[in-house]
Design a protein around this nucleic acid. Sequence first.
DNA 1: TCAATTTTGCCCTAAAAGGATAAAATAAAT
DNA 2: ATTTATTTTATCCTTTTAGGGCAAAATTGA
Lengths: 107, 107
Amino acid sequence: MISFGKFIKTEREKKGWSQTELGALIKVNTPLLSRIENDKKTLAFDKVKLLADTFEMDYQQVKDLYFADKTAKAAYKYKCSENVFTVAEKQFEYIKAANSIQGKLKF
Amino acid sequence: MISFGKFIKTEREKKGWSQTELGALIKVNTPLLSRIENDKKTLAFDKVKLLADTFEMDYQQVKDLYFADKTAKAAYKYKCSENVFTVAEKQFEYIKAANSIQGKLKF
DNA sequence: TCAATTTTGCCCTAAAAGGATAAAATAAAT
DNA sequence: ATTTATTTTATCCTTTTAGGGCAAAATTGA
């Protein structure tokens, strides 16, 4: 498993693109893309769809990777235990269930 | 499984405290605590330790709940799939392993 | 050694997070 | 039925951070 930054770098190189080239496609300038690939900045969420399309990959999957990365980094930074993920998943299911009961569109 | 807001409300009522009373203990004013309990605002992270102490609960556990809640809400909001949590956990383990190799303190 | 590419150092702006006060709404108690 | 206590809502304000930008330095490699 690699970080989202390294994921971008890997896929970019597979395509044989420079940072500037990929940057033009996903609307991110070169210095910023460099930082993103090195996990010093994060890609803005609204660029993720564009990125998935550019890489010809499934949006849902790329999006999941994007958030997984953010979650993992926060969990590490704040010294969470491993079961934070299990708890999160349960909470997630709970919210989904609660909101699928017509009309309740909280959170 | 309940939200972090409802968790606070539940524990507060167990102790028989008003929002103002608990608020004084954890340094949060009443209107803000109301919003927090109703999941309209989030508790600042630096108050979590104080909250755990006040409730006489394990900090690690409360902290995990705090981040689980944030994660779950983001995952729901951005329509992630359920396996975002599994991916996140793998990523988490990867980061931990990478950083346990002396000196590497990235992320 | 020149040219392309990547990285770093700053700086700027817009958005969001966290917090505060006053006032309205609800609930409880007398 | 009115007070009184409690909770919620309406705004507003300040500080932080995310995301982005330019210029220059560093690295890679032809």
